[in-house]
Design a binder for these strands. Sequence first.
DNA 1: CATCTATATTGATGATCGTCAATGTTGGTG
DNA 2: CACCAACATTGACGATCATCAATATAGATG
Lengths: 123, 123
Amino acid sequence: MLVHNGYMKLLPVLEPAADEACCAPAGMPALGAEEAKQKALVFKALADPNRLRLLSIVKAEASGASCVCDLTGPLDLGQPTVSHHLKILVAAGLLHREKRGTWAYYSLVPGALEKTAGLLATL
Amino acid sequence: MLVHNGYMKLLPVLEPAADEACCAPAGMPALGAEEAKQKALVFKALADPNRLRLLSIVKAEASGASCVCDLTGPLDLGQPTVSHHLKILVAAGLLHREKRGTWAYYSLVPGALEKTAGLLATL
DNA sequence: CATCTATATTGATGATCGTCAATGTTGGTG
DNA sequence: CACCAACATTGACGATCATCAATATAGATG
């Protein structure tokens, strides 16, 4: 195995010779495959404009909870589509669902956004 | 009994019928469509396990920069696929690309991860 | 009971995505 | 010049996704 890190960061194109310079040993990937898959799930839930807007509306709601009909109007989407997005956000652990009578109320899971932000720090 | 919106923020106004129930706001979307689309682009770049691992490896590199061949090994992916992922991360403003000789070095854009974490706080 | 209302589920469809094999491009070297 | 190595781009293919129309469920009401 040949190593090249930790040394060449300052010198530009010197590297006079001989051995190939690049490509470290390919040791551990620093972030496990399974761990990465898990974290990607949360970001996947955030990777849609309409879901971000849903989160935003729920977060802005003073009462802390919004029913589906509160969310169907502002977005230009049908009700089944909104329900679908909400399900994804709940599965990602970002929203909490509570059924009260005929209505379903969605609220932010406390600390979920902060925890998600933390995922970036501990990459 | 439907207790619904609590006491509905003391909405004044005309409201023709006795129809109470849900769905009050329907006004501002709290997060603009265009803004949401922009933010979603960044999260979309993070919504793949292999891209997260790429970021992790680049971040862990002591020199601060990794060439493509450093990244092709640890992940179980072909070189064109890695190049493709790197391009997406660069387009999202997360990675910076610098060509030195034959090699291409990728490094974290300073503050990019923190800024992304901030997107969640200002939803 | 029958009915209305709020929400969830299903099925289908067009779009986007992740991946690879093949090829193109660029820079270094003999 | 010819050749090779590192990386990028293209094109194709299967998988996943976002969306809607239609339908189903479940609670409230008459």
